[in-house]
Amino acid sequence: MFKGTDLLAIEGMSYNTVLTIMSEVGYDGIKKFKTAKHFVYWLRLAPNNKVSGGKVLSSKIGKGSGRLKIALRNAANSIGNLKNSTPLRDFFHRINFRKGRVSAITATARKLAVIIWNMVTKGIAYQNPEGYLYLDQKRKSGLVKRIQKQIHKFELKPEDLGFSNNLIINTKI
């Protein structure tokens, strides 16, 4: 418990990670940051956007290996190694597929830092967002609606699509 906030409720967090947070920042230290972005930038987990003339010159993560940054990266790596599906693990694997494991570890560590800041400063418990629609589910529902619109637009019948008469398609939108 971190002043009434259970940080171990987050998957991937261990006692060592919580002890590192307590020793490096402390309860009052986290509250000194105005926003989660300030906390993440202090940890050097936010991209450093160098822009000149509207052109992005660099967006790499700043160098530096603070103990808390290392602890959050280790927690993020353990999230990537989980077998059961959780929202944080799915986030890790989406980034891993697109940008590689190192970027996925950094992005997940940043997300953990934001979650921790919100839990400690706002005093809310971590709730695993299982009930939310994820991007794949949104895409599927959008695809179904688009297909239904096309069927209605072209006034297609089930026989035109090669379906049997037993299958009923709802073409009203």
Rank of each mutant, 00 (worst) to 15 (best):
V56L: 15
Q148R: 15
T106Y: 04
Q148C: 07
K145P: 00
D6E: 14
K99D: 13
M13D: 06
R110V: 00
L88G: 09
V102P: 08
A125N: 11
G12V: 00
T121I: 10
K34A: 10
I116E: 02
G29R: 09
F163C: 03
R98F: 00
L19V: 11
R44M: 05
R73S: 14
H152G: 05
T35M: 02
E159K: 13
E159Y: 06
P129W: 06
Y15N: 11
I95Q: 04
I10R: 01
L112G: 10
K31L: 14
K157G: 03
K153G: 02
T171R: 12
R98H: 11
T171Y: 07
G54P: 07
N16M: 03
K172V: 12
D136R: 15
G26R: 08
M119N: 04
Q150F: 14
L8Q: 05
K157C: 11
K60T: 07
A104T: 07
I79T: 07
K31E: 11
Q127P: 03
I105F: 09
L68S: 01
S59T: 08
R73A: 13
I61W: 03
G100R: 13
K122T: 06
A104P: 09
L112F: 00
D90Q: 12
K157A: 13
T20Q: 12
Y41V: 05
E11Y: 08
G131K: 15
F33P: 03
I115E: 01
G29P: 07
K122E: 05
K122C: 01
N49V: 12
K3D: 01
T86K: 01
I173L: 10
N77C: 04
H38V: 07
I95C: 06
K31P: 10
Y134W: 13
K63Y: 13
Y126R: 08
L68H: 10
L72Y: 06
R67K: 14
L112T: 09
F33A: 05
N48W: 06
K37R: 14
E159F: 01
A71M: 02
R98S: 12
V18N: 06
L68V: 09
S14K: 14
G53E: 03
I30Q: 05
L133G: 03
